[in-house]
Design a protein around this nucleic acid. Sequence first.
DNA 1: TTTCATGTAATAATAATAGTTACGAATTCA
DNA 2: TGAATTCGTAACTATTATTATTACATGAAA
Lengths: 150, 150
Amino acid sequence: MKRNSRLSAVLHALLHMAERGAPMTSDELAVCLQTNPVVVRRTMAGLRDVGLVTSGRGHGGGWALARPLEAVTMRDIYSALGEPMLFQMGNATESPGCLVEQAVNHALDDAFRDAEAMLIARLGEVTLAMLAQDFKRRFAEHRALYQNKG
Amino acid sequence: MKRNSRLSAVLHALLHMAERGAPMTSDELAVCLQTNPVVVRRTMAGLRDVGLVTSGRGHGGGWALARPLEAVTMRDIYSALGEPMLFQMGNATESPGCLVEQAVNHALDDAFRDAEAMLIARLGEVTLAMLAQDFKRRFAEHRALYQNKG
DNA sequence: TTTCATGTAATAATAATAGTTACGAATTCA
DNA sequence: TGAATTCGTAACTATTATTATTACATGAAA
């Protein structure tokens, strides 16, 4: 896994889990996401805590979706991962004794809060089912191209 | 200077530069922003390159605003610092061979692009003059409180 | 009871950012 | 001219945050 793009990676994982019927192990997901099994567990643990996925141990164990694709939005995932991903931009000092800084921080906070609100709203409009459908469309398109060429 | 809050720090600096009539040296700004003079130079150099501030060497030199406060918005500063501050969230892989990932990234990019567009629009509505005025308001308020208490 | 898989703590490695040191170049003033 | 400033930058170090790894315990299934 790279950079701070955990959201992208997790969505990726969830769609692969959906394609598969049975649970996927941390090792399988780690290969899929090009990261380490322990990192997968740590990340998925957060999703399990809010009821988005389930985990099971022993034979036949692993990670599985806890809800149908239609009932999960990108916002759910974003929130489960701990929203401050972006937008944290904590203002310079936590103890704003300087009145200039108070004025600056107030204006910045306003703008960033609004932008994040819009982001969250947009993420809430897209379900995993929609993503899966978009994937299918791309797949069909890709296959058509492939058949044309050979 | 702390964290990734360069935007906040720079706005802070510019307002202090405005209060003062004469240019401020990197050393003075460094004290004001609790950072290092070299860091100040590096940061301010970006603003100078887009014509927001001027720099002068030797006696009486230092940094000064190149435009009136009314003619600079928070967006100008945000852009000059290199927008990808937040929002960079580069999707997991740069070579998206996986169609699942393509679908995910497309959806995420849409949402983040819209949110950043809103952020930039909001930042563009606030001039440094407005921030200065808000500061004055806070100062008056503060002084009133102080006089009441003794 | 052996094998498989998660749970988690502790540690190491990486990457991004910020801070330092050092010195060169340009400007002012005596 | 020469000394005092002050920015301009490169090179290096330090710090911080994130990610990856190791190791082992816990629980479940065959």
